[in-house]
Computed example of a mutant assay.
Amino acid sequence: MTETSQRSRPLRVLAAMSGGVDSAVAAARAVEAGHDVTGVHLALSANPQSFRTGARGCCTIEDSRDARRAADVIGIPFYVWDLAERFREDVVEDFVAEYEAGRTPNPCLRCNEKIKFAALLDKALALGFDAVCTGHYAQVILREDGTRELHRASDMAKDQSYVLGVLDEKQLAHAMFPLGDTVTTKEEIRAEAERRGLAVAKKPDSHDICFIADGDTQGFLARRLGRAEGDIVDESGTKVGSHEGAYGFTIGQRKGLRIGTPAPDGKPRYVLDISPVDNTVTVGPAASLDVSALTAIKPRWCGTAPSGPGTYTAQLRAHGGETEVTAELVDGTLEVSFAAPVRGVAPGQAIVLYDGTRVVGSATIATTVRATTARRLNV
């Protein structure tokens, strides 16, 4: 049974309202389900801009005002909580440090782990709330033995369970996702918002990284880390170009390499490796991106940790597909082998394991093994 169908008594619910349509409809549905709901907008920027840039960014003054207007229409109390310093330390600084170390982080996972379901949930529980409600598309399912599981949303096209794979069972016990168990299109969610009189019905979704409103990640990192010129080399170690900062590249990147020397076969080259130690970026053919295995650290389990090797499906990025893997936890490190080689796998990314629709857990990729050379890349 789903979380919404099994909660028989009204709960005190804190609804995280970003100022967007999903969180507004989620809060409205929680009220409609009979819960005592209070809205809260998280102020995550010390210097919020007045207006977002199109569909980029969030947490602006405009967003907080939109959230307040939605709460007024729904008829619930509303507050703004300042978590800017916590967000800066746990999400923004972590993001910069990971890129500086040659890894590719996912700040949305870190925000869900450290802010929405750690800082926010801890504060909510301390104030006597029973649950935190968000507009994520995922499902919490209660088992007969009283434990809870995180599952994909009913609509795979909108599923966001990947960025929630860091939640443990204790956090799931206090999580509410009212949008996850309904098969509706985004257009239908917007139509529902309009029927409810919510002005955010036509507001564009937020994309990219919320704290980089202009979408220029490389520029953001350059301002934080400064320019650091280095070499771009091929797999033999021959210099084929130069760069102004290895942090500006990600594994699998093709565009923006600015390599003057063409490849011997005339085909495009891709970023294969990023070495912060010698500030070198290695490029090569697409086939060299194939990865057959990886190790991942800092595992977080949505329930009991698996024992022994198992067969699962894995998702490697927020909007990626599933791939079949075998995985085993060995001395705290997750060892994963792919049934077929995959591309674009980068240290720092999260791998989320699934058993059917159930989220087993998440871990941070530490090393990868190339299918073509069986050479382990460790950043």
Rank of each mutant, 00 (worst) to 15 (best):
E3P: 02
T4A: 13
S5M: 15
R7L: 11
S8P: 14
S8T: 15
L14H: 02
L14Q: 01
D22E: 13
S23F: 00
V25G: 01
V25F: 04
V40G: 01
N47H: 12
Q49S: 13
S50E: 13
R52Y: 04
A55W: 14
S64V: 07
A67I: 03
V73L: 06
G75W: 05
V80S: 00
D90G: 10
F95S: 00
E98K: 03
R103F: 03
P105H: 11
P105K: 08
P107W: 07
C108V: 10
N112P: 05
K114C: 06
A119R: 04
L121K: 02
D122H: 13
D122L: 09
L127E: 14
A131D: 00
H136G: 03
A138V: 06
A138D: 04
A138Y: 05
Q139I: 10
E144V: 10
D155A: 15
M156P: 13
K158Y: 13
Q160V: 08
Q160G: 07
Q160F: 06
S161Y: 04
S161I: 03
V163C: 06
V163M: 12
G165S: 08
G165M: 08
G165K: 03
L167Q: 05
D168Y: 07
E169R: 13
A173I: 07
F177L: 12
F177W: 11
T185V: 14
K186T: 12
E187Q: 15
I189S: 03
I189K: 03
R190C: 09
A193T: 06
E194C: 14
R195Q: 15
G197Q: 14
A199G: 07
D205R: 12
S206V: 02
S206C: 12
D208E: 15
F211T: 00
I212T: 04
D216L: 09
T217H: 10
T217C: 09
L221A: 02
A222R: 12
A222C: 10
A222V: 07
R224W: 02
A228E: 07
I232M: 03
E235K: 10
T238P: 00
H243V: 05
G252K: 05
G252D: 06
I259C: 02
G260V: 05
T261L: 11
P262S: 11
K267Y: 08
K267H: 11
Y270M: 08
V271D: 00
V271F: 06
I274Q: 00
I274H: 04
P276G: 03
N279A: 12
T280E: 04
G284A: 10
A286I: 07
A287H: 13
A287E: 15
S292D: 08
S292A: 15
A296P: 01
I297F: 06
S307Q: 15
G310D: 09
T311C: 09
T313K: 11
T313P: 07
E322H: 15
V330S: 08
G332I: 02
V336Y: 00
R343N: 11
R343G: 08
G344Q: 11
A346G: 11
P347H: 12
I351M: 11
I351L: 15
Y354M: 06
G356V: 12
A363S: 09
A366P: 02
R370Q: 13
T372P: 05
T373K: 13
T373E: 10
R375P: 00
V379Y: 01
